[in-house]
Design a protein around this nucleic acid. Structure first.
Lengths: 193, 193
DNA sequence: CGAAAATTTGATCGAAGTCAATCATTGTGG
DNA sequence: CCACAATGATTGACTTCGATCAAATTTTCG
């Protein structure tokens, strides 16, 4: 997997980039290969990077009163960052770690800002990424507001097929706001139907 | 309240606009004065407008199985739109109505897109609006994931002081995902009136 | 293989929901 | 401008879903 094909994927799946912009992006991003359990961002750290998942998966999570609560999962072709830290320039309230050995594209805020000032294409690209994030959050809020524990599990399976094969159930449970035990009971019940 | 001062507020509170861009925005938006209970968007309707609240307040809400569930409140200097319909060009899943007699600035998607292609200032403005919305949603998700009914009520009072004087409790209750009865008991306990 | 991590199962408890009745406030037509 | 209907808010009795605590079982991995 070379950086040019990654940039093509971003242009296709997010927002069109001219050949010139693709080249600029290639020159302002770098590929990272990291092992499972690597930590990309720690709580309290100022993080000015965003990561595009080329291969593998990652999660953002809070550690609150010793409890580990997952806040976001990212798989192939998703972006992940500490949005608070990235956009508000405050210490990150959460951690980001890899759940599998992964290949990532790392882009710094300063490079993005530089590119945004050079080409409207990049202003549009970041807008599209943020809009997609916002719409996913909206779906999640609706799921939390309307649905039972069982429906919320079905929702996450619908939006992330195979998540239950790639991500430990503890993380899925905390993401949808239920306990591991409740999730286990739901899974048992759903197997018999 | 004339349109120029509204445009100045947007430039100050969201993203800087040059004098030229302020003028362009003034020429591509219109002021609406509407009564309490006016419906801005209906479920099922394609809505390609966004509204900036100059005076008054509005809410977005779902009607699901006869239940009215509030999804978003907007007060002075907030934007509100049917984000799904506006950004994905699909039928709106919810309604938007005014909770008070209000003065609004209405801007159509086609005009925004036109302006975005003319001036990077507008691409940046919409990005900033969307980033703010995304960060508010993130706060809300954290509130829903971590907090008891009582804490969620305190959170919304903290982020929207006076909301309990301007918005019926039914709507506040459904917004934070609890019943009106539970909210009433919480208020009694907290001695808020 | 054995230790640690992940998941399942069981028993009990509590926060918030539901259903129902009452009280308070708002707003409109006579 | 009052009357009274409609809307909004409170209170009470009871139920339920999912949490908690505890233990057993299965899976993963060095």
């Amino acid at each position: 997997m070379n950086i040019n094909s990654v940039v093509n994927i971003i242009s296709d799946q997010y927002s069109f980039l001219s050949d010139e912009c693709k080249l600029e992006l290639s020159n302002n991003a770098k590929i990272l290969e990291l092992e499972k359990n690597s930590t990309l961002v720690r709580e309290g750290q100022f993080s000015d990077k965003t990561y595009f998942i080329i291969q593998g998966c990652a999660r953002a999570y809070y550690l609150k009163d010793g409890k580990d609560v997952s806040d976001w999962f990212a798989f192939e072709n998703d972006f992940i960052s500490s949005i608070n830290s990235f956009f508000l320039n405050v210490p990150s309230p959460h951690f980001i770690e890899l759940l599998e050995d992964s290949v990532l594209l790392e882009i710094s805020r300063s490079n993005i800002e530089k590119l945004e000032h050079l080409h409207p294409d990049f202003e549009r690209l970041t807008k599209v990424v943020v809009v997609k994030t916002m719409l996913s959050q909206q779906e999640r809020i609706v799921s939390m507001q309307f649905h039972s524990a069982e429906q919320k599990y079905e929702n996450i399976l619908a939006s992330h097929p195979n998540i239950n094969k790639r991500v430990p159930l503890t993380h899925i449970a905390s993401f949808i706001g239920i306990t591991l035990e409740t999730l286990s009971r739901i899974r048992k019940k759903l197997n018999y139907i």
